[in-house]
Deep mutational scan, measured.
Amino acid sequence: KLLSSIEQACDICRLKKLKCSKEKPKCAKCLKNNWECRYSPKTKRSPLTRAHLTEVESRLERLE
């Protein structure tokens, strides 16, 4: 599967780190437990900047 097509777990399953069936409108866990089942939009991760990478590398060197 391509990364862009990976389905996201519902908010509660993601928060509780449960295996989500990803069914809509309610996944199996939410249906069974009568929880409100919501699927928040995916958040875009910002790409690493060179400055951040350099900072992490220098912190790693100090720890070694």
Rank of each mutant, 00 (worst) to 15 (best):
K1N: 15
K1E: 03
K1C: 15
L2C: 10
L2H: 14
L3Y: 10
L3N: 09
S4D: 11
S4R: 05
S4T: 10
S4G: 07
S5T: 08
I6G: 09
I6L: 13
E7Q: 09
E7V: 09
E7A: 08
Q8K: 10
Q8M: 10
Q8C: 04
Q8H: 10
Q8F: 14
Q8L: 11
A9L: 01
C10Y: 05
D11P: 00
I12G: 14
I12R: 11
C13D: 00
C13G: 01
C13N: 02
R14V: 00
R14S: 04
R14C: 02
L15C: 11
L15T: 11
L15S: 09
K16P: 01
K17N: 06
L18I: 06
L18G: 15
K19G: 15
C20A: 03
C20L: 05
S21G: 09
K22A: 03
K22P: 04
E23N: 14
K24S: 15
K24R: 12
K26L: 14
K26W: 12
K26H: 14
K26V: 10
C27N: 01
C27M: 02
A28W: 15
A28K: 12
K29E: 02
K29F: 04
K29G: 06
C30D: 02
L31P: 03
L31W: 15
K32P: 03
K32I: 11
N33I: 03
N33F: 11
N33R: 11
N34F: 12
N34V: 10
N34Y: 13
W35A: 15
W35V: 15
W35I: 15
E36F: 11
C37Q: 07
C37M: 03
C37Y: 07
R38H: 13
R38L: 15
Y39I: 06
S40L: 07
S40K: 04
P41F: 03
K42A: 12
K42L: 12
K42G: 09
K42I: 10
T43W: 03
T43N: 10
K44N: 11
K44W: 10
R45C: 00
R45W: 01
R45M: 04
S46F: 02
S46N: 01
L48I: 08
T49L: 04
T49H: 05
R50S: 07
H52G: 00
H52P: 00
H52S: 06
H52Q: 05
H52C: 05
H52A: 02
L53H: 02
L53F: 03
L53N: 01
T54Y: 07
T54H: 09
T54M: 08
E55Y: 15
E55D: 14
V56E: 04
V56P: 02
E57F: 07
E57R: 06
S58P: 04
R59S: 07
R59F: 00
R59T: 06
L60W: 00
E61M: 13
R62S: 11
L63N: 03
L63P: 02
L63W: 03
L63V: 07
E64R: 08
E64D: 08
